[in-house]
């Protein structure tokens, strides 16, 4: 129970001012303290870990930005949560995209499990994850877990783009964010170490931006990797970009925002001459949250409903989303999500 102690220790900073409520997607959906950061902290402090709110946290960590007292809410949730068997199963599947491909096919065939039915509803047709490596690669393209199976063309475009200048190796794997968020902290470390080993000290260009954000924080777990989010790499290297005559809006994934990565998306689009119609709040949570979209169907649908209104208000159908879990949510809302790489 050392983890609970840690969570409780971190919770002491909370002065229950409530500043976190209105930025929390589940609070906004339910208007209930149980599903708010402040309520979750109170549950942790009192040791009431069976409180339903502990499970319903999307782990977007927007509350951390709103918190005037600097409470590390993500750490509290990660330390306090006990993953369910189902969650552990999902994590294992995510660790290997081939497994994810097979699981998704089973789900599409009608596997009689609740989570499988939800997967079948939400995901597009799965594709076998592509594999690629140039000899003596100088750069890793990290595609994550979802993209290689459900957004294969995006991965291939990114690969093609990078290969114009670099020798690239494609890695389809999990970054461990889902594990970390849902309380499988040790396994998250293992996953991180595995990834660190696989990178062999080479710089990683990561396609899913929330994973980029998580990997950038690997140092705190004691794992050293050099990570760039794809748009970040494109912008830092000033890679040449094609001009595009397009009107679209941009979704800002939550963790990417925490790491300050979304600005690179905007500057890349600006260089391409793309017309961006801003949402009133582009950071509004999409409801995907890694495994959340599958595990909390009701709440994630309610969060998506709010996001759908926000996107619809721009009049755009195309939404740039640099995170693939978000893209799944946006597809479910009826929009056309694209990654920056899709424009190259």
């Amino acid at each position: 129970m050392a983890d609970l102690k840690l969570a409780q220790q971190l919770s002491l900073k909370c002065v229950h001012c409530g500043f976190c409520l209105e930025v929390c997607p589940t609070y906004r959906a339910t208007r209930s303290e149980v599903h708010s950061p402040r309520g979750r902290i109170a549950a942790v402090v009192s040791g009431a870990l069976t409180s339903s709110g502990i499970e319903t946290c999307v782990y977007c960590r927007k509350c951390e930005e709103a918190c005037p007292s600097g409470v590390e809410f993500g750490e509290i949730m990660s330390a306090a949560r006990r993953p369910s068997l189902e969650q552990i199963m999902v994590h294992r599947i995510l660790e290997d995209p081939l497994r994810l491909y097979n699981a998704a096919r089973l789900a599409k065939m009608g596997l009689p499990l609740q989570v499988a039915r939800r997967v079948a509803q939400i995901t597009p047709e799965p594709t076998l994850p592509p594999e690629y490596s140039d000899p003596d690669p100088e750069l890793i393209l990290f595609a994550g877990c979802i993209a290689p199976v459900f957004f294969t063309s995006t991965v291939l475009r990114a690969l093609g783009f990078l290969r114009q200048r670099y020798r690239v190796r494609l890695i389809n794997a999990c970054c461990g964010l889902a594990h970390y968020a849902e309380g499988e902290r040790e396994r998250a470390l293992t996953v991180a170490q595995r990834l660190g080993d696989a990178a062999q000290g080479k710089p990683i260009v990561s396609l899913p931006s929330n994973c980029s954000s998580h990997m950038k924080a690997f140092r705190q777990l004691g794992v050293e990797v050099e990570v760039y989010d794809f748009p970040e790499f494109v912008e830092l290297m000033r890679l040449p970009l094609p001009k595009k005559q397009l009107g679209l809006t941009v979704h800002e994934p939550c963790h990417a925002r925490l790491a300050g990565l979304n600005r690179y998306v905007h500057s890349a689009l600006e260089r391409m001459g793309v017309q961006v119609v801003e949402m009133a709040d582009p950071t509004l949570e999409c409801g995907a949250g890694g495994g959340y979209i599958f595990e909390q169907p009701e709440l994630s649908d309610e969060i998506m409903e709010a996001k759908k209104k926000e996107v619809a208000a721009t009049g755009c159908d195309t939404v740039v989303s640099t995170n693939f879990a978000c893209s799944l949510a946006l597809m479910r809302m009826g929009f056309t999500p694209i990654h920056l790489a899709d424009l190259l």
Binding site: H16, T30, S32, V34, A43
Partner: peptide, 28 residues
């Protein structure tokens, strides 16, 4: 929209830090 038991305590306080209570029931 009824909250009770341990969860009701999450509605038992506000930003006044010195006192916490625990409602019998919460209705939304």
């Amino acid at each position: 929209w009824v909250v009770e038991g341990e969860d009701a305590a999450l509605f038992g306080f506000d930003a006044f830090t010195a006192v916490k209570g625990r409602p019998r029931l919460v209705a939304l």
